[in-house]
């Protein structure tokens, strides 16, 4: 088949723009596994020494990589579960039910969606202190989930909007309660959206940095992003950059795997749901 456009100019442009990223990623990979004489670019030997953080205590005050990883995992998982559960129900309500001030909620959702959340951080800090949730993982989860919600609800509402109204009415006529209709008939139709929200908010939680750093700076609630940051700060100019890169690789690995496994499902969010 003859193509209307030649591919190579596009590929070239793409390559030029993504080259810096590629180079950085390559060096992340290479440096994590090799030793180098300072000042040179070519590695001098292969080593697993930089990954020592996996089996030894780095003695930097935190409670070890595995505890921090567990924290990160919990943080990402519970954030995404909360966001998904609430988005799936709230999106349905906004799409289907006529309740008071529905327009206000819809408008508010868009405003919050576009709102630079960092500006809220001092207020959130005060509220968490008041509630006694400052410096706890639960506190950060609550805040992160709340900030992720506008996006999740909006996407889910878009998915619900595409489900024909008649399917719901047919279910009601068949004798099913509104809840059964939602659970058995409507939810299966929006499952791609549900999966996308679940994965997206998990990834977003996994890579969150600002919120844990500001709201839970203590060691008990440390997550991988803050662990990395302290590693840099504590080391100062003496920081072990190869170690840093190894931890970074360890930190990025789940994200890469999740993307590879679920990339089709993630594309749904752009194809199926979002309207307006």
């Amino acid at each position: 088949m003859r193509q209307n456009f030649r591919n190579w100019p596009v590929l070239l442009v793409l390559f030029v723009f993504s080259a810096p990223l590629l180079i950085m990623l390559t060096f992340l990979l290479v440096d994590a596994f090799t030793t180098k004489v300072p000042g040179t670019m070519v590695p001098s030997g292969v080593t697993l020494h930089h990954f020592r953080f996996l089996w030894t205590d780095l003695d930097n005050g935190s409670w070890g990589i595995w505890g921090v990883t567990l924290n990160t995992f919990n943080f990402a998982l519970f954030t995404s579960l909360a966001v998904t559960a609430i988005s799936v129900t709230a999106g349905y309500a906004l799409s289907r039910l006529a309740f008071p001030a529905r327009g206000f909620f819809l408008g508010g959702l868009i405003v919050l969606h576009a709102f630079p959340t960092v500006t809220l951080i001092i207020a959130i800090f005060l509220i968490l202190q008041l509630l006694g949730l400052y410096n706890t993982l639960i506190g950060v989860i609550v805040v992160k989930a709340a900030l992720e919600l506008p996006f999740g609800i909006w996407v889910m509402k878009g998915f619900y909007d595409t489900v024909p109204w008649e399917i719901e009415m047919a279910g009601v006529q068949d004798g099913a309660s509104r809840f059964t209709v939602w659970w058995k008939l409507i939810l299966p139709q929006v499952q791609p959206g549900l999966m996308a929200i679940l994965i997206f908010s998990f990834l977003s939680g996994w890579s969150e940095f600002i919120l844990p750093m500001v709201l839970a700076p203590g060691n008990d609630a440390q997550v991988l992003s803050t662990y990395l940051a302290t590693m840099l700060l504590d080391g100062g100019t003496q920081a072990d950059f190869n170690l840093f890169k190894a931890v970074g690789l360890f930190y990025a690995l789940p994200v890469i795997i999740i993307y590879l496994v679920f990339q089709n499902k993630l594309m749904n969010i752009y194809g199926g749901g979002t309207k307006g």
Partner: peptide, 28 residues
Amino acid sequence: SQQRNVGVVFQNYALYPHMNVFDNIAFP
């Protein structure tokens, strides 16, 4: 509606796309 015992055929049929024909008919 649930208690009226009325069967409705909608203009676009409103079949449940994720169920096969048997499950569609069996749903009520």
